[in-house]
Structures are given as C-alpha cells and as structure tokens.
Amino acid sequence: MNAHAVYSVLDLTGTFAFAISGAVAARQRRLDLFGIASVAFMVACGGGIVRDICIGAIPPAGLSNWRYLASSLLASAIAVLAYPSVRRFRHPVLFFDAIGLGIFSVSGAQKALTYSHNAELAVLLGIVSAVGGGVMRDVVLSRVPAILEREIYASAALLGAAVQVGASYAGLTAWWTPWFATVLCVTVRLASLYLGWRLPIFRGRRADAFRNNE
C-alpha cells in the first residue's frame, strides 16, 4: 500500500469515526433524522473543509468527494438503527471522537505538507482538522467545546500532528509512520479520560481574590 492510499484510508476512517461521534451525540439530544445526518456531516467534514480552504485545496474534499458524504450518512444510519449496540460503549461519543481526533490530526498535517506548506502550518492545520468538527458539534448542541476546558484534547492532536510532521522531515515515510502517530494521539486522549489527566490552571493572587469576591 503506497503512501497516498494509506492517507486516503486514514482520512475516510477518521471521517467515519467523527461522523459516528456526531451522530450519537445528536441522537442523545433527540434530534430528528435530518438533524442527526447534518451534525454527523458537520463533525466529519467541518475541520477538513476549513483545512482545505486554508491550504488552497479547492473545492474541499469534504464537498467534492462523494465518499465523505457517504461515510457520514452510513454513520448516521448506524447511530439510528444500531443505537443500543453503540451505546454499550461507556462513553461512545468520547471513544469515537478520540479515534477521529488521532486520525485527522495526522492526515490533516500530512495533507498540508503534500501541498508544500511548512512544518508550523502543517501542525496547526493538523490540529484544526482534528478539533474543528468537534467544536462545531458542541456549539450546535449547546455544549462547552472540549478545547475550552481543561481536558487533554487539542494538545493530544498537537502531539499526533507534530510526530507525523517530524517523521516526514526526518525521512521516515514508511507505511506504519502515520499509524504510529495516530495511535499515539488516540492513546494519550483515551488515557487522559481514563486517568483524569487535566491541563494545569495558573492563578495569580488577583485572580484568586476576584474569585473569592464573586
């Protein structure tokens, strides 16, 4: 399997995983079928569309390639028809979101490199690809986006994108490189959920005094 095929598989797998997370979240909020499909597509393709616009990949793959829409619709169907089975996961939205986070952070960074952008932009757009759809989902469903909380979320995407970009610059272009970066990101995200890892909060005396007076 050549590199292009690997990243295509990664991208479509991430699309499906993110679509599942969006569809399940919409199902939990009791949206109708159109609402579930809309949220699933938004989560699956929102970050990738923003990335493609930024790197000049016009029209964005999420809008021009039927496979992305098909993946999101398939995920919506699974969320509706097999919801009891999907719900058996302890936290299905978080589980599938973690998988999509890892895959999109890596494939997003690599696509930016493919379009001859530098390492800094590749890492940043890898993060945008990974967290953009989730932010849209949370805003539409009236939830606080995960990247605005203390969770290890965007930082896990940063790790996956940075490892992929670093490997590319080091000449490590083996088929297993993107999978390694993806597994690393997913592992850190799931471990942070399981072990309760949080980012630190730095408070000064003025901030503490203001908080005590509230």
Rank of each mutant, 00 (worst) to 15 (best):
A191D: 06
F202I: 08
C185M: 11
L193D: 14
G196D: 10
S192R: 04
L195N: 13
I201Q: 11
L199G: 04
R203M: 09
L193Q: 12
L190K: 12
T182P: 03
V186I: 15
I201P: 00
L190V: 12
W197K: 04
T182H: 04
C185H: 10
W175R: 11
V183C: 10
V188P: 00
R205H: 06
L190Y: 09
G196I: 04
T182C: 12
W175Y: 11
T177W: 06
V183S: 07
P200S: 05
T187D: 02
W197H: 04
V186K: 07
T182I: 03
G196Q: 13
L190P: 00
L195T: 06
A181P: 02
T177L: 08
S192Q: 07
P178K: 09
S192H: 05
L199M: 14
R198P: 04
S192C: 03
T173S: 13
T187L: 12
S192I: 05
T187A: 15
L199K: 14
F202P: 01
G196F: 07
V186E: 11
T187G: 12
W197F: 14
F180H: 02
A181Y: 05
R205V: 00
W176R: 09
T173F: 02
L199P: 00
A174L: 10
W175V: 05
T173Y: 06
L195C: 15
P200C: 02
P200R: 09
A174D: 13
P178M: 12
L184E: 05
W175G: 00
W179G: 05
Y194G: 00
T182V: 05
W179Y: 15
P178A: 13
F202C: 08
L190M: 13
P178V: 06
R203L: 11
A181K: 08
F180W: 13
T173I: 06
V186S: 06
V188R: 01
L190T: 05
L190F: 10
S192Y: 10
W175I: 06
R203Q: 08
T182K: 05
W179P: 00
C185A: 14
W176N: 10
I201Y: 11
V183L: 15
F180M: 14
R198H: 13
Y194Q: 14
R205C: 00
L199I: 00
T182R: 05
R205D: 00
R203F: 07
R189D: 11
A191P: 01
F202L: 14
L199F: 01
L193C: 02
S192T: 04
V183H: 06
L199E: 10
A174H: 12
L184P: 03
R189P: 03
T182Y: 03
P178R: 10
V186R: 08
L184V: 07
L184N: 02
F202K: 09
I201D: 07
W175Q: 11
G204I: 03
L184T: 13
Y194I: 04
F202Y: 12
I201T: 09
G196P: 01
W179S: 11
L190Q: 15
T182D: 01
W175H: 07
V183I: 14
W176Y: 15
T182A: 14
W176C: 04
W175D: 06
F180K: 07
L193Y: 07
F202W: 12
W197I: 02
G204D: 00
C185P: 03
V183T: 06
S192F: 01
L199D: 02
C185Q: 13
A174W: 12
I201F: 04
V183A: 15
L193I: 08
L193W: 09
G196S: 14
T177S: 13
